[in-house]
Design a protein around this nucleic acid. Structure first.
Length: 275
DNA sequence: AACACGTCCTGAGCGC
DNA sequence: TGCGCTCAGGACGTGT
């Protein structure tokens, strides 16, 4: 389940192979993923140098020399393989990008929650409807305790739901939300508006710390996630609470990790050291 | 306005 | 052994 660190890891792996390369042909095998998949019969995407590949939230953005672009979201189970064209297409490979370098980039996504969207030249890609409403990037100065306090003010919904909201901060999914709250010592269930400024500062720092450490570890592999060509993320070894229901908390060494459900998502926390 | 919840999707894991 | 059920969750859309 790719969150920001996983997307960042994939992005860095893809970059050297894609930038300055060109798509020579693109094939798709399903009519839609999360939205329509309209990459075939688009000559404007072919034989144009790939200029940039960067990230905004959990989206990867690829731009071409003619200012067409591609917005890519891996959803829950999306992954890329870069490989020889002599290798067979696999089950759930929904799109193939044949490259001038001779390799093929294959997009695999069993649950088809991902998105591959073409953008037209002329508009700022960051103002695309998928991107325009996104909040600050967690690893920049624009995400700080002042901002978080402003967003939390008066909010009754649980702090965990709030930090998973892309309008508050982007890239924090279910795993890193639980992990960040664990590190900050905050109970995920408490109303966001009741968390003190001091604790929100700790939370801001915890989010930055956890995401940075996860990027360094190449992400977290729980079930589906792998980076390019099947590499697994090692942050799973550093998890404090996620997926550890019933185990003793390694933070305080006293509490037993509890699993609760918040709007259909599982949340893990230590009832002793997260108050 | 704020928040909750349904929806999309497939495969793993489990109980019987 | 095999079937059917439940769960996993990102982000948008809809309902309250």
């Amino acid at each position: 389940m790719p969150e920001l660190p996983e997307v960042e890891t994939v992005l860095q792996a893809l970059k050297p192979h894609l930038v300055d390369n060109k798509f020579t042909s693109i094939k798709t095998y399903v009519p839609k993923l999360r939205g329509p998949l309209e990459l075939e019969d688009r000559p404007e995407l072919l034989n144009q140098s790939i200029v940039e590949l960067y990230r905004r939230a959990k989206y990867m953005i690829l731009t071409l020399a003619n200012n067409y672009g591609l917005i890519i979201h891996l959803g829950m189970t999306g992954s890329f393989r870069l490989e020889s064209t002599s290798l067979q297409r696999q089950k759930h490979d929904h799109a193939e990008f044949y490259l001038l370098s001779g390799l093929v980039l294959r997009y695999n996504d069993p649950r088809r929650f991902g998105q591959l969207v073409v953008t037209e030249p002329g508009n700022n890609i960051l103002e695309h409807k998928l991107l325009i409403h996104l909040g600050p990037e967690p690893l920049t100065e624009s995400f700080d305790n002042t901002w978080l306090a402003r967003v939390c003010k008066g909010k009754k919904k649980p702090i965990k739901s709030l930090i998973m909201d892309n309008a508050t901060v982007v890239g924090v999914g279910n795993i890193y939300a639980s992990e960040s709250l664990s590190l900050a010592g905050i109970n995920p269930l408490v109303a966001a508006g009741t968390v003190t400024k001091k604790r929100l500062k700790r939370l801001t720092e915890a989010i930055k710390h956890v995401l940075t450490a996860a990027i360094e570890a190449g992400g977290t592999t729980i079930k589906d996630y792998t980076s390019l060509n099947g590499e697994e993320g090692k942050f799973v070894r550093e998890l404090m609470v996620y997926g550890k229901a019933g185990q003793k908390c390694s933070g305080c060494n006293r509490g037993i990790i509890k699993q609760v459900y918040q709007s259909g998502r599982s949340t893990y926390y230590c009832p002793v050291c997260q108050r």
